[in-house]
Amino acid sequence: MTETPEETKPEPAAQASEAKSAQPAKPAKPAAADAEVSRRGFFSWAAVAWVGFTAAAGGCLTAWGRFMFPNVLYEPPTSFKVGPPSDFAPDAVDERFVESNGVFIVNDQGQLYALIAICTHLGCPPNWLEAQNKFKCPCHGSGYYRNGINFEGPTPRPLERAAISIDPDDGQVLVDKAQKFLWERGQWDDPSSFLTA
């Protein structure tokens, strides 16, 4: 909205019709004299009202959207203990925690790490095929080496590692799935992504 009447002056025809439409608001005064003022007043109130209405509607939609995101989940905890490090034989893939917690514990070349058992393609659980020395996803055939690096099928990237550490109290291996380490971002060098056996 502009301040000076000179700038806002519309086409004569439009002015006449708008003056007419503004008339009911102030029926006592002659329309031509201060149609400018009453129109500006009317429009700025309308603008406030529309902005307010849009904001309220947007707020309702946001609240509605937020409502659909639950605050409490009844899912197994993301952090769990898997036993002492000596439980994991060298150069082996441990499948004991796949069903309960969804991780493979891999002991490979002196490193112990937890690979999250979710195919990075479409989220199916990959199987460990000991004979072929690879993880294979049943849904679309993505294949990963023992260390989780992808080499076949449609998947774009390797499996993800979960955070792994030794609990200082009882010396058990502690896996935390809430923290993920992605190979393509160079995060596998992070000391909390593996244990040195």
């Binding site: 959207g65 989940l73 009844y74 899912e75």
Partner: peptide, 18 residues
């Protein structure tokens, strides 16, 4: 993983009761 489009769709990190 706990706030994206899929989370809103399936109400959890994995397919479940939600």
């Amino acid at each position: 993983v706990g706030s994206d489009a899929r989370f809103g769709l399936i109400a959890g990190r994995t397919i479940g009761n939600g």
